Simulated assay, not measured.
Amino acid sequence: MGQIARTLTLHDSAIEDDFVDRALKVAFATTDQKHVDQHFGTCEFLAIYLVTRDEVHFHQTIGFEKALMDGTEDKLDIRIKALEDCAAVYCRAVGASAITQLKKIRVQPMKVADGTPIKAQLALLQDELKGDPAFWILRALDAVNEARTDPARFDDMETEGWSE
């Protein structure tokens, strides 16, 4: 089974405290952190961004061990687990089995042209957030808002050993 080879998470003190809580997390299958150029099942990296109508911030890059396009599905598990709190993943291709598994965890797979610039795709997403968002975006925004207002979230934090 594949493993995460490395993770880089940016902690930007310029970001408002609640920005992460109100932003959509979206991921991009990439080799160079600039373009969507990978098949989801064998992607080398997932670049994750936080997006609202008015702001976009890089959040995290997750690197994976090299995976072959050999038809086996064991390489999907680690990639899908890495996306559990994301709203969507943009890639140049995605298989039927991966689509099914992504939908189960409420991650929208988005197929875009090979070489699509990530910045351009983020701008399109922001335009959609300002206008008439697709159903998957509305569903993801509902989940974000629900998580922020759910009174049980503090119980969950306490159970996990959360402290100030």
Rank of each mutant, 00 (worst) to 15 (best):
Q33R: 15
K34P: 04
H35W: 06
D37G: 11
D37I: 12
Q38N: 08
H39M: 09
H39E: 07
F40I: 03
G41E: 02
G41R: 00
T42M: 11
C43G: 05
C43H: 05
C43W: 05
F45V: 04
F45W: 14
F45N: 15
I48C: 04
I48A: 02
L50Y: 13
L50D: 07
T52M: 06
R53E: 04
R53S: 07
D54R: 14
D54P: 08
D54Q: 15
D54G: 14
E55L: 13
H57E: 08
F58K: 06
F58A: 08
F58L: 08
Q60H: 08
Q60R: 15
I62C: 09
F64K: 01
F64G: 03
F64P: 02
L68P: 04
D70A: 10
D70K: 07
G71V: 12
T72P: 00
E73Q: 12
E73C: 10
D74Y: 13
D74R: 12
K75E: 09
L76D: 01
D77K: 14
D77A: 15
R79E: 09
R79W: 13
R79V: 10
I80L: 06
K81S: 09
K81V: 11
A82N: 01
L83F: 00
E84N: 11
A87E: 00
A87Y: 01
A88L: 11
Y90F: 15
Y90K: 08
C91F: 05
C91R: 02
A93N: 13
V94I: 15
G95N: 11
S97Q: 12
S97I: 13
A98Y: 07
T100R: 14
L102E: 03
K103Y: 07
K103M: 11
K103R: 14
K103L: 10
K104D: 08
K104E: 11
K104C: 06
I105N: 02
R106G: 02
V107I: 13
V107N: 08
V107T: 10
V107C: 09
K111A: 00
K111P: 00
A113H: 04
A113I: 09
T116H: 06
T116I: 10
I118D: 01
A120E: 13
Q121F: 07
Q121K: 08
L122G: 01
L122Y: 07
L129W: 02
L129R: 02
L129K: 05
L129T: 03
D132H: 05
A134W: 01
W136H: 02
I137W: 05
L138S: 06
L138V: 12
D142K: 10
D142G: 07
A143P: 01
V144T: 10
N145T: 09
E146N: 09
E146T: 13
E146G: 07
A147F: 11
A147N: 07
R148V: 06
R148S: 06
T149A: 03
D150R: 09
D150K: 07
